[in-house]
Amino acid sequence: MENITLTSSPTTPYFPEVIFDASKGVCEISGESYMEETYKFYLPLINWLKEYTKEVNKPVELNIKLIYLNTSSTKCVLDMLEILKDYEDAGGKVKVNWYYDKSDPDMVDEVEDFEAESGVKIELIEFN
């Protein structure tokens, strides 16, 4: 299974940086996410997780380090969390870490909502 690596650029700060590493089972999304046609951007990531959880069948860790994500992006992140929840329910090992800036309390509320909506436990970790 191939990795996904998308680098960020200062000229397009609305796209996050993405590293989905199939050999390690570690996925990371960082930066900001408020692009147009959000679903087109996230669809390959959603499909990657579906394939990984179906075919690789090893532990998976999702690290989210987004400073800002618009509401369309939140829907796509929720889709990913739902895939992980299904995987966990089927016996898969899942870890989700959400890195946040402690000066942004609204992000903590957002993560609580994601936990409630997806049913996945999310570890909140302060940015260093």
Binding site: Y39, T71, S72, T74, L78
Partner: peptide, 22 residues
Amino acid sequence: LRELKREQRLNSPGEKFGARIG
């Protein structure tokens, strides 16, 4: 509001419709 947000996002068809919670 929080309840509405969770409900709308979960029930939004997604894709081009986004989350409908702006």
